[in-house]
Write a protein that binds this DNA or RNA. Structure first.
Lengths: 213, 213
DNA sequence: CGGGTCTCTGTGATAAAGTCACTGATATCC
DNA sequence: GGATATCAGTGACTTTATCACAGAGACCCG
């Protein structure tokens, strides 16, 4: 599959109005990559060689503890880059987290050398990368606050509201726990409480929101 | 006080070998600022207008919860910039955290416009800022993991080892709690346990490490 | 169809951590 | 030398996490 500059700008509006060559350079040196849902993209400690611009699908970036518990740091969607790639490439570090696809994902990959050059030459590219990196930093800082000070019932409540689609969320308690950084039992118990309070309806592989205010 | 390019490069070796004009530009437009210990530099939500390069002293960047508990995200020392400034300037956000000086701090401040231009023009400046930003992101991600999965006794143990100077740490239980994101009572109790185990000696305003392995 | 095997969920007991409400102990300041 | 402020200790209780199971539903396959 090939992408036109027009399609690219539609997805990545930060590049609108770029002086001609940038997007051309970017697309001509880009590779296209299609990854199935559930694929493991990289692990903590891996080195990285290319940067990915996500066209479609979602990616989950998470940390793991020794006990096996997980916590989601943030998700990457269409119109974003996997900024950890950028961060690794530009700072020469290895990945500080893990990433997995949540759905089938299509992305454009750009070799790190080309990417480095583009960041140097183009103000828009620079600004795009800085903004995304800054945003992630702010996101993760907010997560620290939530984890350190937030109560689990509140966090679960917000999670259900945010993640549900038309009042329904199809997932398992284990997956919710993995996003929130807690254990399955805790999620099960809290959902049961919510159900007793008439806020949700719990069934196998799904939670239906009744009234969460 | 005025700083020579030589002194600057000694503190910020990432700029060694910069093509002449960069450091000159930077220093000629820089302001010098001296701040006493304990001063509040900025709060969550503030806008920012200049970037600071720290010459001497340490700055603590932290988050606060509604209950009044605090947690330190990271500290900034000599030879580093307050990267949140950069991130705000380049991404147009407001501060996502609070900052306070831990000691008397001297720093060079550079107006955001000049800074923007330098990042655009100079490869070394760009690389310096990216590296620091990436490093902070990795730091804060590691903190999420610690807070979400780590045990308090382990965290306190590591903290004491890292922060102590010649086996002694002069601080209050409250300050330790503020760094770790827990409450004073928890720190007091854990320290008491450590003392019973013969690992430390606790006294008012100080902890002496006996044997922490 | 029926039995075996997964995956998902529920629950009790216990341990770790945070909260609340105090008390006591040590400095510090007129 | 007391008044005041700061710092630390403690019991009781709540919230979370962990461990060890037990069922319940889905799915496969002869």
């Amino acid at each position: 599959m090939q992408m036109t500059p027009n399609e690219f700008v539609k997805l990545f509006p930060a590049f609108r109005g770029s002086d001609g060559s940038l997007i051309g350079d970017l697309l001509s040196s880009a590779g296209f990559r299609s990854v199935p849902a559930g694929a493991h993209l990289y692990s903590e400690g891996d080195a990285c060689s290319a940067i990915a611009f996500v066209i479609s699908g979602d990616i989950r970036v998470y940390k793991t503890g020794q006990t096996g518990r997980e916590i989601t740091l943030y998700e990457i969607g269409p119109g974003e880059t996997c900024i950890l790639n950028a961060s690794c490439i530009l700072a020469g570090q290895s990945y500080p987290a893990n990433a997995v696809t949540l759905s089938d994902v299509e992305m454009i990959t750009i070799p790190s050398g080309i990417f480095r050059r583009l960041v140097g030459e183009d103000e828009r590219m620079r600004s795009f990368v800085f903004s995304l990196l800054s945003e992630r930093l702010a996101d993760v800082m907010a997560l620290v606050e939530e984890v350190a000070f937030g109560r689990m019932d509140m966090r679960l409540n917000e999670y259900l509201v945010e993640k549900s689609d038309h009042g329904r969320l199809e997932t398992t308690h284990q997956k919710i726990a993995n996003d929130l950084g807690t254990s399955r039992e805790v999620v099960s118990r809290l959902l049961k409480d919510f159900e007793r309070q008439g806020k949700v309806k719990v069934s196998r592989n799904a939670v239906d929101i009744v009234d969460m205010r």
